[in-house]
Design a protein around this nucleic acid. Structure first.
Lengths: 345, 345
DNA sequence: AAGGTTTGTGCAAACGTTTGAATTATACTA
DNA sequence: TAGTATAATTCAAACGTTTGCACAAACCTT
């Protein structure tokens, strides 16, 4: 049906091997032959069959990204999309294709990735985050299949991974509030079993301790990565006899809940409560007021993950190294924190 | 290295063909043999090599989705992500994998899809939307490659596609405002060259004409799919001597701009202006106030697109039919339109 | 001018499957 | 019990590449 190497060979009056070598720029092919073959390829509209190629080379030139289960954490979508764009862009640049797989639950997830890995459809995998005891990690680890984790695994510290320094990010965010003169700073966190929650909490603590500010347990609220968490956190916090004047919130979507809560209670942002959030998703800018947020470079995170993975895949088994990349973050200051309590007491 | 059909065959004392037929449930395989072979496969950890399979079957059991260029329309990401989830879920269910490709510009986009198509890496493609004269559409059309369009192509009406009835959707949204008693209704649209903009505008017109309401040109603003468009639209509209009391806005993200504009001008929603938006992205619910929006079933759109495509792919060339699927929409009423002017004059 | 390199090509096997046709074993019919 | 229909299996070619090895021609050396 479609043009093969043999067709080209025949028309060019050479053997298939020669055509193949032209394709791979083999040094021993004469300039004349090369030119002629290329001409004919062009003329006949030849395109190499990747499947055949893969079969013999035992390499697919593609990687997969495993999308965590849809779940309630819908809000992460914006983050994932950016990540995926980064991955796809970099992969394309290295001549790789990206497969995307997912599952309705953990079991299905493992099943999906097993299909890809066992069927030798992909050369490597990108994991978009890891709960502890992630079965996908176990699976891949076990068969020594190349993969990179976007995020950090407590249980497997020496795994190929790309991450944000979340401790530092939270530290920076807190410093920002402190430098504005805030002395009563609270924290709305995420699920206490997620590494990112823990890290950000620790950064927050560190900054406050260092500045000798009170670290009050009732100003720290842990919740889900849902806007409702933010909403509820506000009911609690703002009813306290002593209230914080500044607040770190673990994610932009949670911040939406916070803002809604404050609105309903009749408080103003940033005058009554200044807020700094994390992730800097597109919505941070759109919010009213716009939210100060730590940009963690989602696109860059994806781009680097892909790069690292492909590099590993192309390195012989024995020489692979489980490096850990940290992507730079940066605080984007917007209206939600543009207020200094010390000038306004 | 890894277990092949031959290894299994040898150990089971049968020929490779038999093993292959066991795998495909060939009717002429005896129950005994089948059982034995399966046992051995299990025991040896056999998994079919998809590449080899593809090579002979000339079918890859995978489709690709072509992500439009990143561009400024970042806001669409939320929509795309939902779509992709739908696509991936359905594809998995049919035993298909999903490749995702993209490009920094139109040329790169075509190049990327050409690689996949020419390299026979995928059996079909999902296009996530189409500008007019989309080069990717032309490319695929030309080589009769199976693809489905999410959206509608004016230029190629009889193409396999899955879409929302945007005229009806806008009609419904307008009816909602009308039924609340609004008689002065405006429209903030998208780029006038996008089919979705045109359709929604037409639905709006139809509803107003039908209700004998004034269709004032100065209450209709066309813009980009950006929040700034919404913001600017407000400066224009609210400075008019006669102002609308209700408004249709083409997309939730644009509505964010509208809301920001109104806030700055000191107007209240929905009392001073009631708003109904489209797409019902996660952010519609999060907004303050929450936005009434027409849900267009993004996930369902993706799911159906995938289903339709795979069905087509598996239908012999001659019998393929360019069907057009319409996914149901439904208006989600929230605070932004919960106000009736007639009770409050 | 003969031996030794270098350069350019071709041969054929291999990658892991599927599948039509051929073959053998088994069961049924008369 | 021979003869035939049917069930179960094997053979071998094919899918479109790559690549080690063999070979021939052209080029250097001395």
């Amino acid at each position: 049906m479609s043009v093969t190497i043999k067709d080209v060979a025949k028309k060019a009056g050479v053997s298939p091997s020669t055509v193949s070598r032209v394709l791979s720029n083999h040094p021993r092919i004469s300039a004349a032959t090369s030119r002629k073959v290329r001409e004919i390829m062009e003329e006949m509209g030849y395109h190499p069959n990747m499947m055949a190629k893969s079969l013999v080379s035992k390499t697919t030139k593609s990687i997969c990204v495993i999308l965590p289960k849809p779940a309630e954490e819908l809000f992460l979508n914006l983050f994932f999309m950016e990540l995926i764009r980064g991955i796809v862009a970099q992969a394309a640049r290295s001549g790789y294709d990206v497969l995307i797989s997912s599952g309705a639950n953990e079991a299905e997830e493992v099943e999906a990735v097993a299909r890809l890995v066992n069927g030798r459809r992909v050369d490597g995998a990108v994991l978009l985050y890891s709960r502890k005891d992630d079965p996908v990690v176990e699976f891949l680890q076990e068969r020594e299949f190349p993969f990179v984790l976007v995020g950090r695994s407590e249980r497997h510290p020496d795994i190929l991974s790309v991450d944000t320094d979340n401790v530092q990010a939270a530290y920076d965010a807190a410093r920002h509030l402190i430098s504005l003169g805030h002395e009563r700073i609270g924290f709305v966190g995420g699920p206490p079993n997620m590494v990112v929650s823990i890290d950000r909490m620790n950064g927050y603590r560190k900054a406050l301790e260092e500045a000798n500010l009170p670290l009050r347990q009732d100003w720290i609220v842990e919740g889900e990565f849902l806007q409702d968490s933010g909403y509820q956190a506000m009911s609690l916090l703002m009813n306290l006899p002593e209230r914080p004047s500044g607040m770190l919130v673990v994610d932009d979507f949670v911040t939406f809940g916070v803002i809604r809560g404050l609105n309903e209670l009749g408080y103003r942002i940033p005058q009554d409560l200044s807020i700094v959030s994390f992730n800097n998703l597109a919505v941070a800018e759109l919010s009213s007021p716009p939210i100060s947020s730590v940009d963690i470079g989602s696109y860059q995170l994806g781009y680097t993950a892909s790069q690292t993975l492909i590099h590993t895949v192309e390195t012989p088994r024995g020489e692979r190294m489980p490096v850990r990349h940290i992507i730079a973050h940066r605080l984007i200051v917007r209206e939600s924190s543009l207020f200094s309590p010390i000038n306004n007491i």
